[in-house]
Design a protein around this nucleic acid. Structure first.
Lengths: 335, 335
DNA sequence: GTGAAAGCGCTAACAA
DNA sequence: TTGTTAGCGCTTTCAC
């Protein structure tokens, strides 16, 4: 890489002259500016990012810590973050916590040494289960702002971007009730994380309070055989005429399994799931989905963080929580 | 963030003493080392990464440029890269080219200013279509090593990690021929990228040369309605008794659509697709898949790059190409 | 055993 | 208009 020093030497001027010329300072004579720029162009000079970061004490880099890159929703949020960040001239360093508290802590520690200007993260499952929040607080008190999305730690004071999980399942359930469904089941693979709980509560409210029915809930554990669990559930509960799934897998499997068991979708049974557009294109009939607008969530998180970085306050009293509303997209798996 | 300077001041010693003490230099007295370490611990001192990078002229950071984070295969490779990199103390900066040549160029340019020590990338579709490789060559000649995976540019001299695409479809087709399938179709959504072409050739070889049959090929374009295309294809070609899909979407849709059209899978029709484990769990019957071992690909790419970074040669004559063999995982969508 | 000084590449206040 | 200097945080050589 060419440096200012080399350019200066070749041009027989001082380093600062070169620097100023390249930064269009009006201190420098027109002719000099031209000569400098020409040579810089020729050598494809690019200011060294590391030196700039050191000098200016900011890196224009965001640390992103996500629990699982194979989760489509999280991958999509990452996409949204990357796009928004890159629009503002920020790079992102991605760490994957793998739902582990230790890895989350470690990533936070490792990047809180001047590598990044702030963090965007979704809390790892293990951290949520253990209610571990000290590492977040420590990072913030070190002067590095955090923006949390989706799975957030409520007791940490920072900006947040969340989804209206409760309302989403509440409304979806209401919509199934309006179809005259009598036995609406709730199926979930994410019982122990915050959003999973909220989704169940939304369903419960509609079923218990609004319809006065008994909830029918199937909770699947990570180690269970997903297909078998749902198959036996559907076989046992023959009267179930609608399924709301807390994540895409449960919804897709429920739909396909119902068809395999000879039920007609949506005639005999409706299915709604938190899922993406491509998921709904992968089933037949196309899955009715609750869309979370993952890219928007990512973009919002990036925007909040960049604002906070540029305002220079890693935390204060006016922490914003942005709610990105879900949309219920009716396809062919509901009436 | 605490700096050496602050520690030095507080301890009434010089900066270099503190530095040496923390780096366990045997120049420094035991007692001093103890005192220094204690205070560093207390203040949670971490050496500033940016200053280190500047000093040592290496960042311990890898630039990863992937065409599409929503592609499960690519996301999984990213996962593999991250894990391997982090094992070696490297961070990754992720850029998403979105299949665009310009974004790919830009990301390369933007990070080739000292931000990273090297690149891992999969070539964007647009770059492949236009056979654009100059930007890669320029980066390498700047001293930054590149490792390409999956979609590689053969004319660029660098390390590569690829899949045995040709053999994969060749073997899969042979396996279907062994099932006595008479009309095996090839369905693809990725005709214009290198791996898509290789996959078609493997199929063609088995069909034409080994079985002496006529290829039956359905090529789907990005703008097509995926479901409709496959539906009408299956309706028109009633004799098709097996499908090989070049990517997961086509396979999943073919399977579900066949069932919807009243065919039995695998009795009337077999389906094999390049897809992941979770994809095969989302269909019923479970999809027989060609697994690409994405995580291994990522880990290999990271390993190659880190080796090259540490050997200090951005390119030379002994460029390695590693082939990660696919596996044909037989599930319930084949006989 | 400890410290002073130089230097990584850059910017900016100040001097000329 | 141009150059000198200091300094961002760190390591390392060389003096003491």
């Amino acid at each position: 890489m060419v440096t200012l020093k080399q350019l200066a030497k070749e041009l027989n001027v001082s380093i600062s002259t070169v620097s100023k010329a390249l930064n269009n300072s009006d201190e420098i004579g027109e002719e000099t500016v031209r000569r400098v720029k020409e040579l810089a162009e020729l050598y494809n000079y690019k200011p060294n990012k590391v030196a700039l970061s050191l000098k200016q004490n900011k890196t224009k880099t965001i640390g992103v810590i996500i629990p699982n890159i194979l989760n489509r929703f999280l991958a999509k949020v990452l996409f949204g973050i990357e796009r928004e960040a890159s629009k503002h001239g920020y790079n992102i360093i991605t760490c994957i916590s793998n739902e582990s508290l230790d890895k989350e802590k470690e990533s936070l520690q490792l990047l809180a040494n001047g590598s990044v200007d702030g963090f965007i993260l979704s809390v790892a499952q293990e951290s949520q289960v253990n209610n571990a929040i000290e590492h977040f607080k420590r990072t913030i008190s070190q002067g590095l702002p955090i923006v949390m999305f989706d799975r957030v730690a409520h007791d940490v004071m920072c900006d947040k971007v969340i989804v209206d999980d409760f309302d989403a399942t509440y409304n979806a359930t209401k919509s199934l009730l309006a179809e005259k469904r009598k036995n609406i089941a709730f199926v979930s693979n994410i019982n122990d994380i915050s959003v999973g709980k909220l989704r169940e509560r939304g369903y419960n409210k509609a079923i218990l309070e609004d319809a006065g029915q008994e909830p029918i809930v199937l909770k699947i554990k990570k180690k269970d055989d997903h297909q078998k669990k749902i198959r036996s559930f559907l076989k046992k509960n023959k009267t179930v005429d609608a399924v709301i799934a807390a994540e895409s897998s449960s919804g897709i499997i429920a739909l396909n399994m119902a068809i395999n068991l000879g039920r007609k979708v949506p005639k005999d049974m409706s299915v709604i799931a938190f899922a993406s557009k491509s998921d709904s294109n992968h089933t037949f009939p196309k899955l009715t989905t609750i869309r979370q607008h993952a890219k928007t969530i990512g973009a919002n998180a990036a925007e909040l963080l960049i604002n906070r970085i540029q305002s220079g306050s890693s935390s204060n009293d006016d922490n914003k929580t942005k709610i990105v509303k879900t949309s219920l997209i009716k396809n062919k798996s509901t009436l």
